[in-house]
Amino acid sequence: MTKRAKQAIGQKILAAFRAAGAEEVAPDILLPAETLLELYGEDIRARAYVTQDPIRGEMMLRPDFTVPVVQMHMENGAEPARYCYLGEVFRKQDHGELPPEHPRDNEYLQAGFELFARDPGADAEVFALFHGILAPLGLQATMGDMDLLMDAVRALPLSGARRAALLHHIWRPKRFARLLARFSAETSPRNFAEAPTVWTGLRSPDEMQARIDRLQADAAETPLSPQWVDRLGRLFAVQAPAPRALQQLRQLVQEIPDIAEAVDRLERNLADLSRRGIDIERIHFDASHGRHTMEYYDGMTFSFAAAGHADWPPVATGGRYDALAAVLGQAQGRSIPAVGGIIRPGLVFELGGLA
């Protein structure tokens, strides 16, 4: 009965997405693992169910809908395009040594909406759509912008290799913090003495020499100055109602000019949302929002969370993923900006459903 009720809520959300002009699609449940591993790295194995097919090779139970929907659009779609879907996703949940009191489901419904368009108002359109559907639940809306953070990292006076390492780990806050601390300290030279022994190992001598050269070059790097560490820390810590956060970001632009474009875009998005009748004072802006989600968001991010349920995941999440769409469109020579999000009908059910 409960499962049927969650499906009914999912169908109601799906109807709202269709009313917004979306075409309903049904991506496969079993997906080739290769693409997902290339996009997210081996870390995805810790969260996904992987199996071996004697013909198709390594396969993965669908961990989310975005990748197969983007692939489908790049192969067949025109632009602009809107898609919606409803179905199960499958994620492993790491319980650690003791299972939590309220464990998350390993299989749960997602209702989603994806918009492929070059319209600068696409961010506000998707956010407003989710805001309207979820309005009866009184959820807390939070917004962020990963491009804001990435532009700040790209502005750091570091070598390309060090900036690339920080960007790679920006979605892993603890690793990012350790790297930033290491890049801010003096590095001791490393001595790689030559040994007369015969070479053995999985890597070739040329590969190992290239690795040694990189480590020696890294040791010669100038440490990142404390003022840049401070600027980055203050940027990542911005949390306030959206209009007040915008003021704080405007002040930081004076110290980090490279974030000006992202701040301008945030101001346009907030103005667009206000024109759509949304009270932007009630939107919480968190500069680090999105750093704990899947690694394809590279612009605006958003979530809607239920007050009093800190142990729950967000009821809805979404954001912009232009780079993912560009990567998956390379084979067809196509690229189009994209933004979308998902709602969890199961959590909507727990909150009493939609009016």
Rank of each mutant, 00 (worst) to 15 (best):
M1H: 14
K3Q: 15
K3T: 12
Q7F: 13
G10V: 06
A19R: 14
A20G: 00
E24R: 12
E24K: 09
P27W: 02
I29W: 08
L31G: 00
E42M: 02
R45L: 12
R47S: 15
Y49L: 04
T51N: 00
E58G: 00
A78V: 13
A81I: 03
E88Y: 14
E88Q: 13
K92L: 11
Q93Y: 04
H95Y: 09
D105L: 15
L109Y: 11
A111W: 04
F113I: 05
R118D: 12
R118L: 05
D119P: 10
P120M: 11
A124K: 07
L137E: 06
G138F: 04
L148W: 10
V153T: 03
A155F: 09
L158W: 01
S159A: 11
G160K: 14
H169V: 07
R172D: 10
R178G: 09
A181N: 05
R182D: 13
E194P: 05
W199H: 15
L202C: 08
L202T: 12
Q209S: 09
I212M: 13
E221M: 09
L224A: 00
Q227D: 15
W228S: 01
V229G: 03
F236C: 09
A240W: 01
A245I: 00
L246V: 05
L246C: 05
L252R: 08
E255I: 07
I256K: 04
A260F: 04
V263K: 04
N269C: 13
A271C: 11
L273Y: 01
R275Y: 07
H284M: 14
D286V: 13
G290R: 04
R291W: 05
H292V: 11
M294K: 10
Y296I: 09
Y297N: 01
D298H: 10
M300Y: 11
A325E: 00
A326R: 12
R334G: 05
I336F: 10
P337E: 04
L347P: 04
E350P: 06
E350T: 08
G353R: 01
